[in-house]
Design a protein around this nucleic acid. Structure first.
Lengths: 209, 209, 209, 209
DNA sequence: CATGAATGAGGCTTCATTCAT
DNA sequence: GATGAATGAAGCCTCATTCAT
């Protein structure tokens, strides 16, 4: 009996935790940080406010985890691509494509991780998350530059630019819902092309330089 | 005399209005939306809270105007560059350079306009502002594509990517204050190069396509 | 006009502050710390909860000031007696009498300063307050011992005992309200006698030693 | 067998009850009333929160019993001394010494019984407990006065003063932990001397009377 | 009987907005 | 017109108590 209860409980605990995270993620995606008050998250998760605090120490903690969790899977997948086979260009293209496609399909990850969180603690976590994303692209860039695929460039700046580029391009289309698949595919392709071109050697350098 | 008083009044009203906007802009730039409470704005502007409501119907209205005003000058300058002489590439480079340089120098415009404003009404204004910025780059892109400088591409996506790219690249460096001039110049250059390359014809297309 | 408003305001500010302190003191005296919630204090003071925070940073701050203010006047008067003329015995008697008389008459000071405050910050202030009271008696004791009026003794212990003795003796009678003047006078006298005897040379030392 | 099970049960019930009381006493002694939440008590006792409510109707009930139990042993020992042989002075000295010594040694009894308990029901019990303590000293005083050892005095006031005196003198030293035995012995002696002198005939009465 | 997850009322604090002076 | 004191709704968090398992 003790075993069964323990098993049941653990399952339930995990389930509750997931439900809270999912509820928070939904609310943030829909209405941003402002709409995701503890009471609203609890209601969305179908439980009392007190329950939230059994799983998360504070509102800030919850939001940090929402962001971290949302991005953790992304990082895993992106790293898989980054460390996989293929040219640097192909991998960069694939990485951007992978992220943008899921962002447009699944729950609104992009928005969650862009959101200005207002709580200082969350801000800190947010910066770290963005840096982690940037690092994936930086790794690809490094190999590409070493291998002669990409010209020499400030890898930190380029990585940040890549993250910013596809993020911004996603935020617009995401906010107003209801996109057709055709448009999405075109958008994803455009973003990927943009990012790959941005780090590649152009035929003739810009007139300015 | 009635006329003169009216003139004085108007001047004073304008002055007050400007002072409020400037105060709000400063506070947002320093501590984000959270730090810019009405009482703080009033104190920073050297007037009472009641005065704020003589010029702005609500906090949201004030912030919309802060953002609009902050970006209005940018749009003016960017449009001047966009409509000026030179190749599309040169103008694109100059436009990005102009924005990023001011963002890194003056009061923190970039942050103000990136900031997730939390008030739904401000969000709407924020999206509009970003679209306006994007339109400037779209215009340059259009001419560049027509003129054969740039390859065919989704101009909306590219414009959004440009805005996102330099915005993201700025947010990181801006948050941790204290940059040396040398670093700033290098950063600006890197961002500009990134954006120009991103919309230009690469020597050989990405392996994926 | 500015002057008049300023004067009016200052008066009002002071009045509000006093009203809050008085309200908190009343509630603490009646029902202890538990009954003195911010909402209750605000209601008792005839204002909104928000007003409290215009004058006190937090609940703990308010309570510290209630205690400090309650005891400040006491310390002043006690010090006057301690530093005044007369034998050490007479001054000790007068000091204890002065405190106990006011405690029995006016607002319930003794209870306020004994109360276990539950907030760590208040606890710290409470210990300091008790030490300050003890210091007054310690000063008298020191002179009395030097002058040969009192036998050698641990002055810290004796001072603490004095404070504890009259405090405890007051708390009991105070809780059940409605004492006759005659009883009060007798009680005050008994307490004073107790304290003076306690630090004086007995005819024959206790059998134990 | 029914009998044996019942016996086991009773033993277990008693054991649980004791464990709860001991846990609550420990927590109160360490961190005061605030730290002794039901969940914490349950954890300290190694059982569930629900179990607490099998033995105590409410938190207040539990705390009343903690206090009562903590003081019951004291009263027993004090009464033994009070009703034992020896002069009134010697017995008074021994009674105060007995209490203070245990207070300084064992779990923090003094603190527990001084603590302002915040729950009205506990307050009432606390006053009763203090009165019971006072009664022990009152009994000794009565015999001492009748026997000519002590001068005539308000026995209620003196008894309360005694309780207050050693209580207060203990609270200070207890809070900052880590006393050396030597200091403790000196402190105990000082307190006992103070209390005995306080009810004894001084060589020359205070100047005031 | 025993557990501890779950509840939800209640407390503290903040801040946009109003209005008497 | 100008002030800033005053309001009070609303948000976060705690914890005594209950009840399904």
């Amino acid at each position: 009996m003790a075993y069964r209860r323990s098993a049941l409980m653990e399952e339930r605990l995990a389930s509750n935790r997931e439900r809270i995270l999912a509820a928070a993620r939904r609310l943030i995606a829909e209405g941003g940080y402002r709409e995701a008050q503890i009471a609203a998250v609890a209601a969305e998760a179908g439980m009392s406010t007190g329950m939230i605090y059994r799983y998360f120490r504070s509102k800030a903690d919850l939001f940090i985890e929402v962001m971290t969790a949302a991005i953790a899977r992304e990082l895993e997948l992106l790293n898989e691509i980054a460390e996989g086979p293929g040219t640097a260009k192909a991998r960069l293209y694939a990485a951007v494509e992978s992220f943008t496609r899921r962002a447009l399909t699944g729950p609104n990850l992009a928005y969650a991780f862009i959101a200005e969180p207002a709580e200082p603690e969350v801000d800190i976590a947010r910066i770290r998350v963005r840096q982690q994303l940037g690092n994936v692209f930086k790794a690809i860039l490094k190999e590409g530059i070493t291998g002669g695929e990409f010209p020499a460039q400030d890898m930190d700046a380029s990585a940040a630019c890549i993250v910013g580029a596809y993020t911004e391009a996603l935020v617009g289309p995401i906010a107003p819902k209801g996109q057709r698949v055709k448009d999405q595919e075109r958008l994803i392709q455009s973003i990927c092309d943009f990012c790959v071109r941005a780090v590649s050697q152009p035929i003739n350098p810009s007139g300015k330089r």
